[in-house]
């Protein structure tokens, strides 16, 4: 592990204790994040991208979750952290924005109060100073008439404005790392692009690192430097976003990009859909989880999956992609 890595995850496994047996939500996931870098975790529903993200803040209920592997954040071993240290870290070193700001805010406190509370707790500011910081943050995320909005309740804001307010809350203590879990998915197109560009700009200004969870290839292209594509709980391909998305190696990445409707497609042609659907994660899958839907499948694919093949800046987990590279 090199010292300049802000996040270093090795062989992460997350298993939930379900009523009908365990669910293997994340299997053998490894990745890292450098200072100032943005990584997009790209994948479809149930692929484990949000579960991976929440593990980085240890937000899963402890009694229902088994987390194995190594997570180092800013040089500290996350999995051995005590509750007090954990609360000090959340919001200060690592902060998070969610898809649904209405659920992330407490509806009975004003937006200002919630930002002030966080700043007072983490930065040790007085109430007056914390209020100044809160106002500065609301202005920074370009909420119109910010001074007035400071005393507004979450329900008094529009969806786009609430999302900006949540970003203000997340960034109020100048975290080193921002985790963004589909923060623009629920927004309208014209508002989504405003928020994406705003996040990019703030990232540059504050020198943060970002992990961005998304199912939208376009969003990954807009915000990320690198992307890790997830399928059935594993990272199956990883590398610079331009390389991976313009020349995908893994058959799933190829299939996903092919199936995504984009401008300039021939409207007379059927879409190259991926047949079938992702597997249930109620069984520990050791072979390639995509094999059942893959047109390159051979008997070899049903044997335990090899470790990721690394080639310079990229990595892929597919024996057939290996042959091509």
């Amino acid at each position: 592990m090199s010292a300049d890595k802000l996040i270093d995850v090795r062989n992460l496994n997350v298993t939930f204790k379900g009523e009908e047996g365990p669910v293997y939500a994340v299997s053998d996931v490894s990745f890292d994040l450098a200072a100032g870098e943005t990584l997009a975790l790209l994948g479809e529903s149930g692929c484990g991208k949000s579960v991976t993200m929440k593990s980085l803040m240890r937000l899963h209920p402890a009694h229902k979750t088994r987390i194995e592997g190594q997570i180092n954040i800013d040089g500290v071993d996350l999995l051995s952290m005590r509750p007090a240290a954990l609360s000090a870290m959340r919001g200060k070193t690592v902060s998070m924005v969610f898809q649904e700001p209405m659920l992330a805010f407490d509806p009975v406190y004003t937006v200002g109060d919630q930002i002030i509370e966080s700043v007072m707790r983490h930065e040790g500011f007085s109430r007056v100073d914390a209020r100044k910081r809160a106002l500065e943050m609301l202005e920074r995320v370009r909420i119109p008439s910010a001074a007035k909005r400071l005393d507004a309740y979450p329900h008094e804001m529009s969806g786009g404005m609430r999302q900006r307010a949540m970003i203000a809350l997340a960034l109020a203590c100048k975290p080193k790392i921002l985790l963004a879990d589909e923060p623009t998915t629920a927004l309208d197109a014209t508002v989504q692009i405003q928020v994406l560009l705003l996040l990019k700009e703030l990232q540059r200004e504050l020198g943060m690192s970002m992990i961005f969870v998304t199912h939208d290839v376009g969003v990954a292209i807009e915000v990320a430097d690198r992307t890790a594509v997830m399928y059935a709980g594993r990272i199956i391909e990883e590398g610079p976003v331009d390389d991976v998305l313009s020349n995908p190696w893994h058959p799933y990445t190829q299939g996903l990009l092919g199936a995504t409707v984009h401008p300039g497609m021939d409207r007379k042609q059927a879409l190259p859909a991926i047949p079938g659907s992702p597997p249930q994660l109620t069984r520990q899958i050791t072979e390639c989880a995509f094999a059942a839907r893959c047109s390159y499948r051979t008997d070899e694919c049903m044997k335990p999956m090899p470790a990721a093949y690394q080639a310079q800046t990229r990595a892929v987990r597919c024996i057939h992609a290996l042959a091509e590279v």
Binding site: S158, D188, L196, L197, D216, V217, V219, I221, V241, D242
Partner: peptide, 21 residues
């Protein structure tokens, strides 16, 4: 123009609308 580009090499210059509907 607010639709994110789907191919990395055609990343657009977005003309961003101000405000919410």
């Amino acid at each position: 123009s607010s639709v994110p580009s789907q191919t990395p090499h055609e990343r657009k210059q977005h003309k961003v609308l101000e405000g919410d509907p």
